[in-house]
Amino acid sequence: MSVLLELRGLTKTFHGRRSASGPGVAVRALGGIDLSVASGEHLSIVGGSGCGKTTLARAVLGLTKPDSGAILFRGNKVDGETARLRDFRRQARMVFQDPFASLDPRFSVRAILQEALCLETPMKAAAREEKMRTVLRSVELAEDILGRYPHEFSGGERQRISLARALMTDPALLILDEAVSSVDVLAQQKILNLLARLQARLPVTYIFISHNLRAVRKISRKIAVMSHGRIVEYGAVADIFERPAHRYTRQLLRAALEYRCEESQDIESSNGTWRDIGGGHWVLSEE
């Protein structure tokens, strides 16, 4: 399988606002991320709040400028050159966490979907309309909602509209940032099933960012565990769930699946070396 997206040594540190009392606090959100995602892959990135998952997604899509490192899409660097960036923007789409915040309340569904086409070559009105209807069908929404506004929809429906917007340009890469965590469990299940069906039909690669380990276990094939801005463990779903190698992963799994948590085990996994413990299961070993 060819590599679709490759991240090399991505770092990002947020600096607090400097004040008269001294320099602000620096927070390291990404501490050197190396990751490659194969075409057609379904990768999940899991980790606790504040571990840098969202920063990673934003950095990939150019919303946050990384301090150093490179993003390669189909082997080409995407920063800088505009033609390549435009192509990347058409190919890589993101669905945000909050379905109530990611749709502009003043835009009708039609305007929302049309906006996604802004980089495409202009097409005829009829063709555009047909495209929108097709995409709405594919996310299992009625076709006659084009004239309606976001506040008329439930959270689950809005998330499908977001998904439809992301699918308008037939992207190769879809980043779903906690895309199901703010809707109820039934709607979650429906969207997860939908994502699985879509992937069966379209050549789309998912990066699924979540802290919902049950969902991750069900739908993804690979998992990357993040902690304190580093990826601490990477491997196939079964490997990670059956023999978690990193201390943080074990802690996370125990908390998620058995609702147990050991107190005072904050793991600072800033340094270490990568070790392959068999079958493409990598772990950052603590020295």
Binding site: R90, R93, F96, L103, D104, E115, C118
Partner: peptide, 26 residues
């Protein structure tokens, strides 16, 4: 910093247009 502004940026909407369609109307 609203999500729909960030979305528009990832969609490749130009900054002038973002200001006119997503920021000022609000």
């Amino acid at each position: 910093e609203r999500d729909y502004v960030l979305v528009a940026r990832t969609l490749g909407v130009s900054q002038g247009r973002i200001i006119l369609t997503h920021i000022l109307p609000h």
